[in-house]
């Protein structure tokens, strides 16, 4: 893989599906002017992000506003266009090697399956992941390394870039597998409906992850999912096997556990930082989930580190 300073060729999109094939990973990144617009083109499986600045990205018929804290996964054969806003914009377009994607999917899911056997088409379809994702640590660390390696004189630079890309691709394939599995929990026969519902639930779930310390109501999260509250609660439990409320508690307790290990902050402060209003309910919930009080948890972990 090398870093390209030219965007992928725009082909007439029209009504035909022209899925491009990439024999090597394709990574575009460059500083582009504020008013820059890129017309619609067909994508390969990949990632779209903004290293710097803001942009409005249209993927098929949906619009997503991206900044440095969010990214998009794009499915093969989707239609993508974008318009940049503000000044000092650095977009990133990463399309994975088409053959490698297929080989990995085959190696992961069909290792012992005869070549001519029927395969679940959904393992090759990444549309469930095609929505805004909030920038997570792995991608945040990977992208600068990739860009650096793509135009580097370092030893084995191409090999090292390929290792990172493989790591990213493995994660995406695993995430897609999990998404397919979870979406099937919804028991919705019509595939397009199932995908829409799954995406809405996932966006709401990720919003909760990003805002778990804030005070909000389930009605608000249901609004994010564009579902009525009753419907949202029922579908969330069906898909993720837990209620939004329990999921939120799990998120807060997990965050509190990390803070107890990594900081010296008082328990009462951590309790507030992660979004609990009452220290007693925090302590009770913590004990139920971790089997000990927050203070005991901190002491035990410190003792283990010292050993």
């Amino acid at each position: 893989m090398i870093v390209r300073h030219q965007l992928p060729e725009v082909k007439l999109t029209g009504v035909q599906d022209i899925t491009p094939a990439y024999a090597d990973h394709y990574l575009f990144t460059d500083s582009l002017p504020a008013s820059f617009r890129y017309p619609e083109h067909f994508t390969a499986l990949g990632i779209v992000a903004m290293l710097k600045g803001k942009g409005e990205f249209k993927i098929n018929d949906e619009t997503a506003a991206l900044d440095e804290n969010a990214f998009l996964i794009v499915n093969r054969g989707s239609r993508l266009s974008f318009a940049l806003q503000g000044s000092d914009n650095i977009p990133v377009l990463l399309y994975f090697n088409t053959i490698l994607c297929d080989l990995l999917i085959r190696a992961i899911f069909y290792r012992d399956v005869p070549a001519d056997a029927e395969r679940d088409i959904e393992t090759y379809d990444f549309s469930l992941l095609e929505h805004i994702h909030f920038q997570h640590a792995t991608l945040k660390n990977h992208l600068p390394w990739l860009i650096n390696l793509g135009s580097s004189c370092s030893s084995f630079h191409a090999l090292k870039a390929d290792m990172l890309l493989r790591n990213l691709l493995d994660n995406i394939i695993a995430e897609n597998y999990a998404a397919v599995t979870v979406s099937k929990n919804l028991d919705v026969v019509k595939q397009s409906t199932r995908k829409t519902l799954y995406k809405r639930l996932t966006v709401a779930k990720q919003w909760m992850e990003a805002n778990c310390a804030a005070a909000f109501t389930i009605d608000h999260v249901a609004d994010i999912a564009m579902l009525n509250t009753h419907h949202f609660l029922r579908l969330f439990k069906k898909a993720f096997r837990t209620t939004p409320h329990q999921y939120l508690i799990d998120l807060r307790i997990k965050r509190a556990s990390n803070l107890l290990i990594a900081t010296d902050s008082p328990v009462s402060e951590i309790c507030q930082d992660v979004g609990f209003e009452s220290l007693s309910s925090f302590s009770t919930l913590f004990k139920v989930r971790c089997g000990m009080s927050p203070t005991q948890f901190r002491e035990l972990n410190r003792a283990q580190v010292e050993k």
Partner: peptide, 18 residues
């Protein structure tokens, strides 16, 4: 293959030289 031959040949040989 034409699209990756140079990448592997140059990338790997340059790495081993160092």
């Amino acid at each position: 293959d034409e699209s990756t031959a140079l990448k592997h040949f140059v990338g790997d040989s340059r790495g081993w030289i160092f």
